[in-house]
Nucleic acid binder design. Sequence first.
DNA 1: CTGAAAGCGCTAACAC
DNA 2: GTGTTAGCGCTTTCAG
Lengths: 341, 341
Amino acid sequence: MSETERDPSTRTAPVKITDVAAAAGVAPMTVSRVINTPDRVSPETTARVREAIARLGYVPNLIAGGLSSRKSRMVAAIVPTIAHPMFAGLVQSFSDAMRVAGYQVMLSISGYEDTDDESLFRALLGRRPDALMITGSGYSPAALQMLIEARIPVVEVWDVSSRPIDMAIGFDHAQVGAEVAAFLLAKGHDRFAVLTARDSRALSRARGFTEAVAAAGKPIVWEKITPSPSTAAAGREGLRALLPALDQRCALLCSSDLMAFGVVTEARVQGVMIPEHLAVVGFGNLELSAANEPAITTVSPEGAGTGRSAAGFLLRRLSGEGPRETDRVVVPFRIMERATA
Amino acid sequence: MSETERDPSTRTAPVKITDVAAAAGVAPMTVSRVINTPDRVSPETTARVREAIARLGYVPNLIAGGLSSRKSRMVAAIVPTIAHPMFAGLVQSFSDAMRVAGYQVMLSISGYEDTDDESLFRALLGRRPDALMITGSGYSPAALQMLIEARIPVVEVWDVSSRPIDMAIGFDHAQVGAEVAAFLLAKGHDRFAVLTARDSRALSRARGFTEAVAAAGKPIVWEKITPSPSTAAAGREGLRALLPALDQRCALLCSSDLMAFGVVTEARVQGVMIPEHLAVVGFGNLELSAANEPAITTVSPEGAGTGRSAAGFLLRRLSGEGPRETDRVVVPFRIMERATA
DNA sequence: CTGAAAGCGCTAACAC
DNA sequence: GTGTTAGCGCTTTCAG
């Protein structure tokens, strides 16, 4: 304290609505109208006010306006990471769509480890976002209760297997695993392996995969779980660990394209023929995967489209529309068949 | 309108500080103190208030508090994209550090094309962030003037070649290019090529590179500029375009590791020996680059460390300290010599 | 250690 | 079309 008025000569009080009003010779409310509902103000007044705004460099305080109107025009978004291209695409398309509609995104990167979700939510909800996008599951009941009590539109993304709070968009990870299994089974594989990172969505896919394989009466001959996130290095290491089990032909599910890339790279080094001796399927459809040699067979989750859709859901709700049946969407995914399987 | 009171039975007015105060039998101010300066309240009162907060599920409205205290505890961050791992790392480490200190990050993804930076800044500054992190240059003078008038700490990241508004952290991209040239020159190369995306930082590196090469009296035998962002596919295509110029040994600077990866991959397909016939240097030090076979020689920009440092700068200033000489930091970068050069 | 009064900068609601 | 009044939910400031 006592530091506040350091340099009186330079200190300019930030210009506020009353300053503009005085400069334009109108009431503050008229300035507000010029900004928010220009069609309710006469052209002459508007011009005068606009001039004053420009001359003074007035930037309206949206925080104050929000307090008054009970609309913050901010939305919160929670993702585990943005280091992964899938989430990066999600966040990018979501915030693009929101910004166009005049909403600012408050981003929280939660990490994969179970941190204190209650204080995370408190920090976010305390800023009174008008809506919320969250990815994934694994939140505590108390934390979810906070979301419900906040009474704002919530869209859950990437995981619709459980019953959502409000709206949901994404796909069923277990089903992804099952369909990859079906795809490989149809290609005549009869020995399977799994290399996955320890994150809930990836584990769901692995479970769906192994269950479908078991249902077909085929064996999972090898399985390895690595720490999140999945990396190319983990893929290379994974292949080396898999090598002893590779006496016969085998099909491997990886939890991400990066991991699949590592596997394929190490396979080349080790002289393992792909896909003749080892078939590899990734997840995420990175730009990299199509460009690699051999191009990696993968599952395309349409991350960007998901973000856009999530934004669309929230914006529709924010515009006053009530819930709809179609608020729970399972995004179709595509198996991109390329050279590795 | 008239939609607001849909379901009176369910509608619960959000609990506010006066509700908690009433429930605990104290003044609102005391509740505020329990939350913000607990040591100035007696233990018994604190306990009573805490109980009321928990029972009512009170989540303080930080927006209202911020209006009153003139501190939003939000910081704005502007990046061109988060699809690129470099920026993803920057944002992630920055927001981690900020969140620990109790600040929420408002993220704006500006895109590479020159959009309307004034309205972007207005949208951000209107929310009265306590501080701002921006990446890069190319903003209009009018927009920069807005930042100056906002009178909040500003840290510019990734580009310290121009004179910064306030604080700056990053490295000199032109110098990166020059040092890569020196590195390749020292290895005995005497024919050079450049494959770069059209973004200002990448172009600075390319310029630094070509100037250093020219200063050494060696030729740039080939140069190609592709649209941003740099992709692996652009790298593969780039190598095919380079092929005719590859009658002699040559050293290539790529604007990113992804692009370098594409070049190296296509080189394998085309039978171009790396690094014997073509030396390749990337930029960014992606996880991928070390894991690739051959591992990609690159420049490591320490993106994560940069985000942390940027946060540190802002937090120091926010804690009341004045400007320092060390507010302009040029981050050291490292050339990671691996298998491709 | 606790409370009462007075705003923070804006907008909803109601005049005129 | 424009102005006035009364808050939004909190914290600052000053009294006790």
